[in-house]
Design a protein around this nucleic acid. Structure first.
Lengths: 337, 337
DNA sequence: TTGTATGCGTTATCAC
DNA sequence: GTGATAACGCATACAA
């Protein structure tokens, strides 16, 4: 049998409410009695029944996090940043991965909602084009923060990186290296990050007077298989591009592997650049140029925003969209020797 | 205001208990009334208050998972396996990472305990040498399943791979490739997995009549920096090993990078082999030979075991230790041409 | 500063 | 099959 505040109260001949207040450090209780109570609580091995407290207060001190893949360096960095801030502020964090699958994302969101998380931090999956499962939260003013893959249709705090700037810089860099015919393997355009990266690419081309060639742009889900299919398509008619900007590192890798297998040298024959700075991009040969995203900082910021929102229930917050700088990392795969 | 079972009851002029039973598919309720109740529950937008139900039943339908690092391919595979089975069985999964930090692990365990997870699946951190935070669970018969990094001192289901066999096979393989002076960079020996890998290494050496040279064995935390330090130490006195068995892929990688920087060729001059089959091990040059661990299956099995335990409260279960086969993957880094 | 009384929404025990 | 009632452990409005 677990000891309750009533047991402690009985032992000390005081009321349960005093015990409750003392244990919650309510300043209205005198220090003397508070200490007395805490001491006997300790002695009796008291452990608060959080389930009861949560039920009573309708709060869980829990932040839900939905990410597409826990296994991607960028996302796990964000998660670490969130955890860092959350734990310091007395919040637990519960993480689930959608696997870029809409059904799973929907299910997780409903589970989190049913379990009354105090707030939700989310980066949506590639298949996500409807948002009822997220409006569940915003409609009831449950704090909601988006990062990276955000949703325009919902008002909330949003934390993104400068994808447009990243795409622009990367393409500019390829042009500076002498590339004239630059292909782009992009992600699904329902996700704004990929749209922005692509628009940055287009802007850089236009600025340099290079016409945009739609046949050089392929949008897919950026898996390894997708990357291979894309490069096959791009090189089909022997009208080869001289550089490829891939919207993530994984497809950049698969492109490089495919090219190498077919006797084409990177970067000598074709320049390649990725996005996100996955750890492997530094390790492979050639090392892959890419764009660095400040995942850990984004996570910290996301947690700060949501905790503020949870604690300040007074009035609607002014939602802000925070854009973090992205930074190009020039490695071997994009540099003419 | 959320609608409750009482609201539904009032609307239908029946009792709340009937509503409760109907919504929980209690077979004692006639199908007619059940349907009637479910229909109006739908109409009224009823959402069960899980917090109240959890409080009442002392169950949360939640499984806690503690892993050292969410970011390691092996661990995230296990997590995916756990989620797969858990969701299918109506359990939510809440994941936290210890970062191989004891304090954090301790805190997470206490948080999970306080939040009354129905069961805990855990792989302990490198610093973990005391287990009170886990006995919290076993002492109160809260289902507990260890995987990979298990704890001998606590009786529970355990799922491991054949680390001994892996270490043995790997070393054997190096010997077959002609290695005579084989170093070992191992993990902390308080973790049985590393002890077993090391013992497999020793067994293979002995079998081949090679004497064990303590100066060729270095134990550390297997980070990238540790790997570099270890190889520096091993090559200090110009008395070089001709092969190195690293207890994980990351230290194998840092060893290879260090050697390459110093003009020593892998595998021509020194053979290197890792452990765990991290994705990058296939991608780097030379590709790293390693040992494959069936993470996803382990996760599924762990979830199955814990769910069985949660549902069968009758009597103490017979705890089993399941050993999954490990499989050597021969790539370039360990093969004499 | 402390005590009393009440209720959160559900499930479980009993009675009918 | 269904209903009345109590209880889970805590936090809080109100009274003292």
């Amino acid at each position: 049998m677990e000891t309750t505040i009533h047991d402690i109260a009985k032992r000390l001949n005081i009321s349960a409410s005093t015990v409750s207040r003392a244990l919650n450090n309510n300043p209205i209780i005198s220090e003397a009695t508070r200490n007395r109570i805490k001491k006997t609580a300790d002695e009796m091995g008291y452990r608060p029944n959080i389930l009861a407290a949560n039920f009573r207060t309708k709060r869980t001190n829990t932040i839900g996090v939905i990410v597409p893949l826990i296994n991607r360096h960028f996302f796990s960095s964000v998660v670490s940043g969130i955890e860092d801030v959350a734990y310091k502020n007395g919040f637990a964090v519960t993480i689930s991965q959608s696997n870029d699958n809409f059904e799973k994302e929907d299910k997780i969101a409903h589970t989190f909602f049913a379990n009354r998380v105090d707030g939700l931090i989310v980066s949506i999956g590639m298949e996500t084009t409807t948002f009822d499962h997220l409006k569940l939260f915003s409609d009831r003013n449950i704090p909601l923060v988006f990062f990276d893959r955000v949703v325009d249709e919902i008002e909330a705090h949003k934390i993104v990186i400068d994808d447009f700037g990243g795409g622009y810089l990367v393409t500019k860099h390829l042009i500076e290296q002498g590339a004239k015919k630059i292909a782009h393997i992009g992600g699904p355009l329902n996700l704004k990050i990929y749209k922005n990266r692509q628009e940055g690419y287009c802007k850089a081309l236009k600025e340099s007077g290079i016409e945009i060639d739609e046949s050089l742009i392929i949008n897919n889900s950026l898996t390894r298989a997708d990357g291979t299919r894309a490069i096959q398509k791009l090189t089909k008619n022997n009208d080869w591009p001289d550089a490829i900007f891939c919207a993530n590192d994984l497809s950049a890798l698969s492109v490089i592997i495919y090219l190498q297998k077919n006797g084409i040298k990177v970067p000598e024959d074709i320049l390649v650049i990725g996005f996100s700075n996955e750890p492997f991009s530094e390790l492979v040969t050639p090392s892959i140029s890419t764009v660095k995203q400040p995942g850990f900082s984004m996570g910290k910021k996301a947690a700060e925003l949501i905790i503020n929102q949870i604690n300040n229930t007074t009035g609607k917050p002014e939602f802000e969209t925070i854009t973090m700088p992205s930074e190009i990392i020039e490695r071997s795969s994009s540099k003419r020797k």
